[in-house]
């Protein structure tokens, strides 16, 4: 039994670390290029609260010291990178003095839950439908229906979300309009809470699923056509194998491999799309946290959320890369 070669893992680790570093640096550097001074925003917020502020200059200086932006850039940068690696993004300015990491820790499980469910469902449904478009034994009706459904899958989930929300929540009132669970429901391990979560999660998940499966289906269709023409599919038929067995073990099993690589490349865009869906459904996840932070100009939260989502993306890519050699034995061979 051959194992994954060391160089392969090292290469992927380098990519992972580089992704995290570049993303963290971009997030740090961009606000510093901006003429906007976060201390002044904080001061502005105080002024808005108290009417007037005396000793504005002194307060500004104190704020700057607190935020650490009076120090040399390089010192700030090193401090920031250290913090980021420990997932410490400082304190939220809008919900002062709650640490950003605490806010993210509250929001993250919601996002992760929604993400896992919707991404996995779309990936499976999409690839299966794509495979069925090519398979010669697919019923005629399906072969007409699937491509027709495909047209709507070019729409980003945010638009489908609006539509579903209007039809099923606002008009028919089958599902709640916003939130991740009912306002009157006490969070806990109860049936009422669980059903409330499911009810609230259904529409956001559906709005992602209905429009993103097409991407996978189209990719799969192209790959299946290639696999269908390959010699091992011909031989499988000549072996007298059952059509269904050929479909799963010979065709889909081979065609899915590039799709998994594509999954790793697309995961960032998919998560970003989901963040927007969370925002319109006011779902208690990272999307809502980000949107609220943008409204409040709460920079530490914006940075923290962006960083964590990018980290999540990079980790997913890394994990997919690590699993890949186990599903495609040729990779193990090539690198070794």
């Amino acid at each position: 039994m051959s194992r994954i070669p060391k160089e392969y893992i090292i290469n992927r680790l380098i990519t992972l670390v580089l992704t995290i570093l570049i993303a963290a640096t971009l997030i740090w550097i961009i606000p510093r290029l901006s003429p906007v001074d976060p201390a002044e925003i904080a001061l502005g917020r105080m002024a808005a609260g108290a009417g007037t502020v005396e000793n504005a200059d002194e307060i500004l200086a104190t704020l700057r010291a607190q935020m650490g932006i009076d120090q040399p850039m390089i010192v700030q940068y090193i401090k920031y990178i250290k913090g980021v690696l420990l997932l410490d993004f400082g304190l939220s300015t809008a919900a002062f003095p709650t640490p950003v990491s605490a806010l993210i820790a509250n929001a993250l499980p919601w996002t992760l839950g929604l993400m896992l469910i919707s991404l996995i469902i779309t990936f499976i449904v999409g690839n299966l439908l794509g495979a069925l478009m090519v398979w010669e034994k697919t019923p005629r009706l399906w072969k007409v229906a699937i491509p027709a459904a495909m047209v709507f899958t070019s729409i980003p989930p945010i638009l489908s979300g609006l539509l579903l929300m209007w039809i099923f929540a606002a008009k028919l009132q089958w599902f709640p309009l916003t939130g991740a669970y009912g306002l009157t429901v006490e969070p806990g391990w109860t049936w009422t809470f669980a059903s409330s979560v499911l009810q609230h999660g259904f529409l956001p998940a559906l709005s992602i699923v209905v429009v993103t499966f097409g991407f996978w289906a189209l990719g799969m269709r192209g790959l299946m056509i290639t696999v269908q023409g390959e010699d091992h599919t011909t031989l499988a038929k000549a072996k007298g194998l059952k059509p269904r067995y050929i479909l799963y073990k010979y065709m889909i099993r081979n065609a899915i491999l590039p799709q998994i690589t594509a999954f790793a490349l697309k995961i960032g865009l998919l998560i970003a799309g989901q963040v927007l869906v969370e925002r319109i459904f006011a779902y208690n996840g990272m999307g809502k946290l980000l949107y609220d932070a943008i409204l409040d100009q709460d920079f530490p939260v914006i940075q923290g959320v962006s960083y964590v989502i990018i980290l999540l993306t990079a980790l997913s890519v890394f994990i997919v890369d690590l699993i890949y050699p186990f599903i495609d034995p040729r990779v193990r061979h090539e690198v070794a």
Binding site: L269, I302, S306, T313
Partner: peptide
């Protein structure tokens, strides 16, 4: 590296600062 970074989030940081 850049292909895995979602553009939306970097742009959110950019536009909320600028």
């Amino acid at each position: 590296v850049m292909i895995t970074i979602p553009p939306l989030l970097i742009l959110v940081v950019f536009q909320s600062s600028f």
